[in-house]
Amino acid sequence: MGNIKLELKEKIIEQLNLEDMTVDEIADKDPLFGEGLGLDSIDALELIVMLDKDYGIKLADPKEGKKIFESIETMAAYITEHGKK
C-alpha cells in the first residue's frame, strides 16, 4: 500500500503537470481538490483515465470519484481493492 501511495504521488505530479510540487509535499491525507492540491474538474477526468490506463479500473458511476479521489490514501485503498493490473 505504501508503494502505491508513492507511485500515485509520482503519477499525479507527472500527469497533472504539478511542476512546482514534490512527492514529499503531498501528505497521504491531503485533500486532492479544493484547499489541498487545488486540482480542478479537468484533473478529475485525468485521474479517471489514469485509473483505467494504469490500474484497469473503469469507474461506472462518476459520482464514485468524489469519494475515491478524496486523498492519496482513499485512492490507494480503492486501487488495492479493485485494481486489475
Partner: peptide
C-alpha cells in the same frame, strides 16, 4: 485508446 482530457481542452 486513452485520450487525455487535459490535452483535449
Amino acid at each position: 485508446f486513452y485520450p487525455s482530457p487535459g490535452v483535449f481542452v
